Simulated scan of single mutants.
Amino acid sequence: MTQQQGWSAPVPPPQRKKRRKWPWVLLGVVLLLAGGCAALIVGIAHEVGEESGREITVTYEVTGDAKDVTITYATYSDGDLSQNQVTDVDPPWRKQLKTKGFVKGGRLVVTTGASGGTVHCRVTADGTTRTATASGVVATAVCDGF
C-alpha cells in the first residue's frame, strides 16, 4: 500500500505590499504650492521692475490774482526727494518735470504774500489732477496726493 498524503489547501501566492499613495499626493501638493509661490514672486518682481522704470510727467501750475506769491514744490524721483522754492512770483506760473522710480509724485504749496489775493494750484501727474484754492493775506493752497 501506498501511503496517502493528507490533503492540504493550496498555498496562496504571497501578497504584494500595497504602496502608500499619500506621500506622492503630498509631494504633488507641495510642488504645486512651491511652483505657484515662485510664479507669484516672479510676477510681482516683474511688475515692480516695470513700475520703477516707468517715467511720468508732473505739471505744476499756479494761477490767481495774488502778487508776490511763494511757490514750493517737491518731487520724488528715483527714490530721492527734491524740493525747490520760488519767491515773489506773480501768477500764472508753470513747471513741468519728468520723474521715475517706484515712488513718484510730490507736493505743491502756494502761499499768498502780504498783499493778499487768491491763488489756485493744480498738479497733473500720470492722469491724476489735484487742485486747491486759497484766498487772503498769507493764505496757503496745497496740492498733493498724486
Results as ranks from 00 to 15, higher is better:
residue 134 A to E: 04
residue 83 Q to A: 15
residue 22 W to C: 02
residue 74 A to F: 00
residue 103 V to C: 05
residue 107 R to Q: 13
residue 71 I to D: 00
residue 33 L to K: 06
residue 6 G to R: 12
residue 87 T to C: 01
residue 100 K to L: 10
residue 61 E to L: 01
residue 46 H to M: 11
residue 44 I to W: 08
residue 127 G to E: 06
residue 28 G to T: 14
residue 20 R to V: 05
residue 82 S to C: 02
residue 63 T to Y: 04
residue 124 T to V: 10
residue 135 S to K: 07
residue 127 G to H: 09
residue 83 Q to Y: 02
residue 138 V to E: 13
residue 105 G to D: 05
residue 22 W to S: 15
residue 44 I to M: 09
residue 96 Q to M: 12
residue 52 S to K: 15
residue 81 L to G: 03
residue 76 Y to H: 14
residue 98 K to T: 10
residue 119 V to W: 01
residue 78 D to W: 04
residue 74 A to I: 01
residue 5 Q to N: 14
residue 3 Q to R: 09
residue 69 V to T: 07
residue 39 A to G: 08
residue 76 Y to M: 12
residue 123 V to P: 00
residue 45 A to K: 12
residue 125 A to I: 01
residue 114 A to L: 14
residue 10 P to L: 10
residue 94 R to I: 08
residue 98 K to G: 05
residue 13 P to Q: 09
residue 15 Q to I: 06
residue 134 A to K: 01
residue 133 T to C: 04
residue 22 W to D: 14
residue 56 I to S: 13
residue 5 Q to P: 01
residue 93 W to C: 04
residue 49 G to N: 15
residue 108 L to N: 00
residue 125 A to P: 03
residue 47 E to H: 09
residue 12 P to F: 06
residue 112 T to I: 02
residue 20 R to K: 15
residue 16 R to Y: 06
residue 121 C to Q: 01
residue 126 D to V: 04
residue 27 L to R: 10
residue 71 I to L: 08
residue 8 S to I: 12
residue 102 F to E: 08
residue 132 A to S: 11
residue 46 H to E: 08
